[in-house]
Design a protein around this nucleic acid. Structure first.
Length: 1195
RNA sequence: GCUCGAGUGGCGGAAUUGGUAGACGCGCUGGAUUCAAAAUCCAGUGUUUUAGGACGUGCGGGUUCGAUUCCCGCCUCGAGUACCA
């Protein structure tokens, strides 16, 4: 006697597989390779729900199938274990993220005493065929050593556009030394000045480093970043959803900060082209294509005209460099020119309102009392410092009452001032200044003595800026714009700059200055979300400046407006109101002329943006040309005139790579003379230091600023404490930022290729993966995961792999050959309907009424009563009878509530999520369990389907159901452990596959699981048809003569193989059910049928298959048994049940031999009595016969 | 707004190249077994009907002997994206 004891069987085989390393992949194998990978999971503390393993089950089925087909399969698993949740948890509890991460993976007890199962155990219970010997965790130093190594390779590389690949910085240095940068065609920062070889050789090392930084593939630069104050960090574009942070949903603002960036834009075209070579879902490719956003057009420069004499004092000549940056040559102009207007007004105000300590100290510092010139409230870069001595590069800050503008301190501030701009910072508290002024002054004086002296070119900052803001002459100033419609250039009637544009402060006339500055400031304050929320409001300000049309010579007013984005193209547009709706709306709003340059186009209501059926007119030499002809002609004209050229523009921006957080890879970078330097690769990993708190420092530095030892000693090559004053010329501060989550996940698939550390042949300590391993496994053959990674992980890893390929570290250019997005499994939330009786006189609510209300119990009303009678209107229970019913229940219970009060009560109804574990498959609520779930429900009264109070077991309370995302907060989470416990892992695996197509989102319904569970029981029975359900399989040939069971088997082989290859897992589960139903009916017990059947089912239900395999007499695991071979001969039929249709409607079927030809079929059909019946005497006009398929009679 | 995807019984979903719509499972109904329940087994189950049929794959057209499948227009839902010049 033997029942299907799935718990025993599953535990037994899971142990067996682990012990025998059944699924270990070999790096040296005769077999062809196949690499199946799941997207890297983040090990969260919440554990798995049934939605998580869906993709893993699918990939496991495929991996097991490939093993049966004779492939050497690599199917690894590991953890993307750096990340925000562990760090947020660390901030709350003080626990080291490494510890919580370990518990989340391996299990244990968390700080609140909660038992945590751990990811690994949960995964093991489902019977995956992972090769755990190759596991990786991104937060292990052994792993992130190589993440840092790859970062340094990017740092030591530049992108050569001519050979279209990344090359080493050493090669760039040697090109510079031999020919300067004139012939270099690189992906680099804009506006790098040209230099010759001899000039290069003359440069100081710092200057050289500064220039090289502009070419490196990862570089440090001032960029507009997405700053999230609540998370205390910057975010990448893909980490922002609808203008708020993806994690936590906090607001995000645009901000300029010095950050590490990755020059992914260098790869824009290759990332686009590569999409054609990979087998990915079209929507995913589309979203990458959109994200890269290639558009073809032209770049044109418009000259800025000198202001008209009447309009101002246009005689101050300030030189501008190619980026339009003026004034920066003066040593005291240390503020960031882009936001100087804002800084300026803040500085002014702060000078007017000094704190007590500030004014005391200023008295001691002003007019060179200490021997050096100090400045008060002075802008440096993006900040305003309290006092600064520029010649000594000494900043003095007084802490305490903080100016309100400085409340939003940020992590970069001190780092930037101290380590990148080379300032020394002295910090005093208000108390020290007020109570111990003498000590403070002498500290300042002694510090001044030791510091080297630089220059402070006189003049006052504020006064100077007054002058600078007078518009410079436009002789060298131009506004470059990008346009996809260069053919419409004669329709330009104005220009618009982004408010953040560098030129804004340069060209604004004094008349317009105030309006412009107000506008710029207002725009900067608006969050991205606000800007998105109202795209309809048209705003903008005229700068007072004019630009010259390159062909007509017309003066075009230059505006600023926030519909122009600083980050796209050049941050400026030539506005063609007749052809672009946004320009049209802007022109209409500000009453700017709208010239029409399209023949026969009506632009009275809206812009005419059609390209294809367009004829250009009013456009000089472009008249009567089509869009394409005009475009070609005008670009030639641009080039001839030297005002522009054809250009391809991408929406893709360089990816910000710094995070002001603790739990990430440290950058292997230290700062010397303000320039970043790489730590020698031999010294990696640079380990994450311990800190006593995971928050930013008081100065707003990232958490790493709290580490005691976080300086690099060049001489001893180790991490050391900061140098003492006057010593340690070899000791430099290390970078305080850490890398983002996508750093570790951009290359992990390569790490799996190398054998695990415990293997004798492992080279994991020497290389990120050995050449042999990389060349054998190449890339991932099948990658399964969610579509949420479309523009993050999947784009960044493609970028890194292309880079690694360029530099010869990887043999392939694309990481993932085939990719499948599994759909989400949704939860079926359950709702109960609670009626609360509240006093109708809400305003008179007082503690007395509240006391009385407390005596009134909660009512819960069964769903169908409400549904059927439509009793809910705006949250109010509308039926009086029901209300009276509730009141009478209260009276019956003789609660101490006056009749008068009762009559005032108004019932409110709301639906509440109820834990799905308290509801059975018939949607009946377990009332007792529900009462016990919360104190406030203890006395609740339930109204049944029949509308009466429930006080026995015959009455039912029915909940309503709704499909929602599965989440703890919705109480609809189904835990796979529970399913395994109750039905077994094989049932879980089958059911997840059976639910529906892998790619589709589908609701989980635990009730349906009995179907597949019943199937497994039937399967087991099929092999146990002996006396007392003993194992019974015979060697006798399959049901002699009939061959019905072989037909069933081969039909199933064919279907299963086709289905797996098409990733149509749900239909193959159906075909197993059909097979087992048929074989059971046939009373099949033949080994020739049942043995192959076990292999067919093994990828889906490996435990039961392994057990049956053992019972069939095999000592080896079923996992590598060859997949049964399909043989057509068993499916050959001799006759066909023909559907006979009349005018396309099937009326009856007729069994006929398959070897009949058309004429014979027609004769047979026409002779049939039913045919005559359906024809009702008519003569058929036509008889369509498709032999083997159908017969259709028309007439 | 734009891009992509999807609409089939009470539910999850099948249907290969245009050829018997609703496979398989859940649920439901009836029956067997049982003291009873669970489990198991058997039968039925798109709607409608005057029991012959009629109608049925989001809606309206079209192509075809024949359309869930192909074409045109529309509606609804979901996902991505967000002024990209």
């Amino acid at each position: 006697m033997s029942k299907y004891h799935f718990n025993e069987i599953e535990a037994k085989w899971q142990k067996h597989w682990a012990k025998n390393h059944t699924f270990k992949a070999e790096n040296l194998s005769e077999k062809p390779k196949y690499y199946v990978l799941d997207m890297f999971p983040y090990p969260s503390g919440a554990g798995l729900h049934v939605g998580h393993p869906l993709g893993y089950i699918a990939s496991d089925v495929y991996a097991r199938f490939k093993r049966h087909q004779g492939f050497n399969v690599l199917h690894p698993m590991g953890y993307d274990s750096f990340g925000l949740p562990a760090e947020q948890y660390a901030i709350q509890t003080g626990q080291h993220p490494a510890e919580t991460t370990k518990v989340n993976i391996e299990g244990g007890v968390d700080k609140n005493g909660n038992e945590i199962e751990g990811y690994r155990k949960q995964l093991d219970r489902i019977g995956f065929s992972f090769d755990w010997s190759r596991e990786v965790r991104t937060s292990n130093p052994e792993y992130y050593k190589w993440t840092q190594w790859i970062f340094l390779q990017l740092f030591e590389s530049w992108y050569d556009k001519d050979s279209d690949k990344a090359r080493s910085i050493e090669e760039l240095r040697s090109i510079f030394s031999s020919e300067g940068n004139i012939h270099i065609n690189a992906a680099c920062d804009e506006g790098i000045a040209h230099f010759t070889a001899s000039e290069w050789l003359e440069f100081s090392e710092i200057q050289k480093q500064e220039i090289l930084l502009k070419y490196r593939l990862t570089y440090l630069a001032e960029t507009e970043v997405n700053w999230c104050a609540q998370l205390g960090t910057v975010l990448a574009n893909d980490e922002i959803v609808n203008g708020v942070s993806e994690r936590g949903g906090y607001p995000v603002i645009r901000k300029k900060m010095k950050q590490w960036s990755m020059r992914i834009t260098a790869y824009a075209q290759r990332l686009l082209d590569g999409l054609d070579k990979i087998d990915w879902p079209q929507p995913l490719k589309d979203s990458q294509t959109n994200w890269i956003g290639r558009s073809k057009g032209a770049i044109v420069e418009f000259k800025v005209l000198p202001p008209a004499p009447s309009k101002g004092r246009g005689d101050v000549n300030v030189s501008t460099d190619s980026k339009g940056r003026g004034a920066e040559s003066a040593g005291y102009l240390t503020g960031n020119s882009a936001i100087i207007g804002t800084l300026l007004s803040r500085a002014k105000e702060m000078r007017k309102n000094p704190t007590k300590a500030e004014s005391i100290l200023w008295n001691e510092l002003r007019t060179k009392k200490v021997g050096y010139k100090f400045r008060q409230q002075h802008p440096i870069d993006n900040y305003i410092v309290d006092f600064v001595c520029l010649s000594k590069r000494l900043i003095i800050e007084v802490d305490g009452e903080i100016h309100q503008y400085q409340l939003e301190k940020d992590g970069e501030r001190e780092l930037l001032l101290k380590e990148k701009k080379g300032f020394k910072i002295l910090r005093f508290t208000n108390n020290e200044v007020i109570n111990n002024l003498q000590k403070v002054v002498s500290k300042i004086e002694s510090t001044l003595k030791v510091l080297p002296t630089g220059e402070d070119l006189g003049g006052d900052f504020l006064e100077h800026l007054e002058q600078v803001s007078i518009p410079p002459l436009g002789a060298r100033g131009t506004i470059p714009v990008f346009t996809t419609r260069p053919d419409t250039i004669f329709g330009v009637s104005f220009m618009v700059l982004a408010p953040e544009h560098d030129l804004v402060s340069k060209i604004t006339t004094s008349e317009q200055k105030e309006a412009v500055e107000n506008y710029v400031e207002a725009t900067a304050k608006r969050s991205e979300r606000e800007r998105m929320a109202d795209v309809k409001t048209i705003t903008g300000v005229f700068t007072g400046a004019y630009a010259e049309h390159p062909f007509t010579g017309d003066s075009l007013p230059v505006w600023i407006g926030d519909y122009v984005l600083a980050g796209y193209g050049t941050g400026a547009v030539m506005s063609v109101p007749c052809g672009d709706q946004r320009d049209y709306d802007f022109a209409k709003h500000f009453k700017i002329p709208i010239p029409n340059i399209f023949k026969d186009a009506d632009i009275s209501e809206e812009a005419y943006s059609d390209k294809e059926n367009t004829t250009i007119t009013n456009s000089d030499f472009l008249n009567d040309l089509s869009y394409s002809a005009a475009t070609e002609k005008i670009i030639a004209a641009f080039e001839e005139k030297g005002v522009g050229e054809g250009k391809i523009n991408y929406r893709l921006r360089d990816a910000v790579f710094s995070r002001q957080r603790y739990w990430g890879e440290p950058f292997p970078i230290y700062y010397k003379d303000g320039m970043p330097h790489a730590i020698p690769t031999e010294c990696l990993p640079l380990r994450l230091p311990d800190v006593e708190k995971y928050l930013p420092t008081e100065e707003g530095e990232p958490p790493l600023g709290r580490a005691e030892k976080w300086h690099w000693d060049e001489r001893t090559r180790e991490v050391v404490s900061p140098p003492l004053e006057g010593s340690g010329e070899d000791i430099f501060p290390l970078e305080l930022n850490t890398m983002p989550g996508w750093a570790g996940s951009s290359w992990y698939f390569f790490r799996y290729m190398e054998s695990g550390k415990t293997e004798s042949d492992s080279k994991r300590d020497e290389v990120f993966a050995s050449k042999e391993a990389l060349n054998y496994w190449k890339n991932v053959d099948l990658y399964i995961g969610g579509s949420e990674h479309a523009t993050g992980h999947l784009l960044y890893s493609r970028f890194w792999v292309k880079f690694m390929h360029d530099r010869g570290f990887a043999p392939v250019e694309e990481p993932f050959k085939k990719l499948i997005n599994q759909g989400m499994i949704l939860g079926e939330s359950a709702f109960v309907y609670r009626v609360t009786l509240a006093s109708g006189n809400v305003k008179e609510d007082n503690s007395e009424t509240i006391e009385i209300l407390k005596k009134i119990p909660n009512f819960f009303i069964s769903y169908n009563i409400l549904r059927e009678k439509g009793q809910v209107q705006n949250g109010l229970l509308s039926t009086i009878s029901l209300r009276n019913k509730l009141l009478s229940i209260i009276r019956e219970q003789s609660r101490d509530v006056s009749e008068d009060f009762l009559s005032q009560l108004v019932p409110f109804i709301n639906d509440l999520h109820v834990d799905v574990s308290l509801v059975n498959i018939h949607n009946e609520l377990d009332i007792e369990a529900f009462r016990n779930s919360r104190e406030e429900y203890k006395e609740a009264i339930f109204i049944s389907e029949k509308g009466i109070e429930i006080n026995n077991n015959n009455e039912k309370y029915i909940v309503s159901r709704e499909v929602e995302k599965m989440s703890k907060s919705k109480y609809n989470v189904v835990n796979p452990d529970d399913i395994c416990e109750q039905y077994g892992a094989d049932t879980l695996r089958l059911y997840e596959m059976f639910l529906g197509p892998l790619e589709q989102a589908k609701p989980w319904n635990t009730a349906g699981i009995t179907g597949v569970h019943g199937f497994l029981k039937k399967l087991w029975k099929l092999y146990h048809s002996g006396p007392d359900e003993s194992f019974y399989v015979t060697d006798s040939p399959p049901s002699e003569g009939q061959g019905e069971d072989l037909k069933t088997l081969h039909k199933t082989i064919k279907k299963t193989q086709e289905d797996i290859e098409n990733f149509s897992f749900n239909t193959s589960v159906s075909s197993f059910m059909i097979a087992v139903n048929e074989l059971t009916a046939q009373k099949c017990n033949s080994k020739d049928v049942l043995e192959p059947l076990a292999i067919l089912i093994s990828p889906y239900a490996p435990h039961i298959a392994e057990e049956l395999w053992r019972k069939l007499g095999h000592s080896e695991s079923i996992s590598t048994a060859p997949f049964p071979k399909f043989e057509e001969k068993y499916l050959v039929e001799s006759s066909k049940e023909y559907p006979i249709s009349f005018n396309g409607k099937m009326r009856f079927t007729l069994e006929l031999p398959l070897d009949l030809n058309k004429d014979e079929i027609e004769t047979a059909v026409m002779a049939h009595e039913k045919t005559a019946q359906y024809l009702e005497g008519r003569t058929p006009k036509k008889v369509i016969i498709v032999p083997g398929k159908i017969v259709n009679i028309v007439g």
